[in-house]
Amino acid sequence: MDILLGAEDDDGSPRRRTSGSRTQQRRSRRRRKKQRRKGRVATLFAVVIIIGVLGGLGYFGFTWARSVMIPKDYSGEGRGEVVVEIEEGASATDVAQMLEDEGVVASARAFVNAIGAAGKSSSLQPGQYEMRKGMSAASALTLLDPKNRMLNRLTIREGLRLSKIYEELSTATGKPVEDFKKAARADIGLPSYAKGRLEGFAFPATYEISSKLTPQQILTKMVDRFNQTADRVDLEGQAKQLGFTAKQIIVIASIVQAESGSAEDMPKVARVIYNRLTSNPQMKLGMDSTVMYGLNKYGIAASHADLESTSRYNTYKYFGLPPGPIANPGDHAIEAALHPADGNWLYFVTVDPKRGITKFTDKESEFWKLRDEFNRNNK
């Protein structure tokens, strides 16, 4: 019986333990859930930290990359005023660096990028430009348009006397005539045969003259152009073949320039000069233009009083060429002096100066008829 009772007690005891075990299981499950929640929170926190770190690295990386890829650039039109100069032969990179050094743009790369974007790398031209400090690269590029250059385009016409050239240069630059006269005595690159005299060697052409150029630099530009022409036509070599010096050829060219009614007549006028100098030793050159130069006068016909001048430029009084050029000849006159036309003419008269009509003859009697025609046309 005791055994049976014990068995019953045993049956009840396991039931009570089972109930307690379930409670422990629930508690265990709750602990595991809490631990899982903590694990998930920790994981989430770690992910947030990692994302934050990566985000920070990404931001700084982007900022660094942006600073490398996108150069510094100002915004707006800038302020103040600064004059910059693009040198002859300067590349776009050279110009960009110069603008950065002058404080016009924030960085050379910004300007190079602006040029590339606009496709204007070949549009930059030498000259001076008015700019502003602290400009955006795009604005700076706009102001470097060639039409904005601070240059005076001055055309020196063929046949001008040096005194007239000085006046035109003075007007174009605002510098006194005396400054140009003084500069002409300095080292301006004159060839040795010029004997230090600029008349005849200030080459007529169109020049871009900057306000920063000195009179000496401007005159040097003109002489440089003469020297280039002299080299191109082999002035000294061609003169020697003709039996003259280079200076004598320029004297002849200056007379051709002054006496011709048109470029087409120049080789004929040159031939008359050579014929008078070489074909008839007893004949004087007899050119009105040389007489007028010696008297510092202008006109196409010398008066009887003019012909009494004792100046060495009076070719009615003295044999041979005058002592120096009487004007500054251009390409056509120099070419004509080196390559005169074929002919036996000894005289010519520009019978109609307004229309530039010149007639040539080898007979003195015909010459006087042409003089009468000239007088009728110029009453």
Rank of each mutant, 00 (worst) to 15 (best):
S210D: 10
S211Q: 11
K212G: 09
K212N: 14
K212Y: 11
L213M: 14
T214S: 13
Q216S: 10
I218P: 01
M222Q: 08
M222I: 08
M222Y: 06
D224Y: 13
R225C: 08
R225L: 12
N227T: 08
Q228M: 07
A230T: 12
A230D: 09
R232D: 11
V233Y: 04
D234S: 13
D234G: 10
L235P: 00
Q238P: 08
Q238W: 01
Q238I: 06
K240I: 02
L242R: 13
F244I: 04
F244M: 08
T245A: 05
Q248N: 14
Q248E: 15
I249D: 00
I250K: 04
V251R: 03
I252D: 01
I252N: 03
A253R: 02
A253T: 05
I255Q: 01
I255A: 05
Q257E: 15
E259V: 13
S260A: 10
G261H: 02
A263P: 05
P267N: 04
V272H: 04
V272S: 03
Y274P: 03
N275Y: 12
N275G: 09
N275A: 01
R276M: 01
R276H: 00
L277I: 10
T278F: 14
T278N: 14
N280L: 13
P281K: 00
K284G: 10
G286Y: 14
G286I: 12
D288M: 11
D288K: 09
S289W: 02
T290P: 00
M292F: 01
Y293C: 06
G294H: 06
N296R: 15
K297C: 12
G299Y: 00
I300Q: 13
A301G: 02
H304E: 15
L307K: 06
S309H: 13
Y313D: 00
Y313Q: 06
Y316H: 09
K317W: 04
F319C: 01
L321S: 00
P323G: 10
N328V: 02
P329L: 07
P329Y: 00
A333N: 05
A333H: 05
A336L: 01
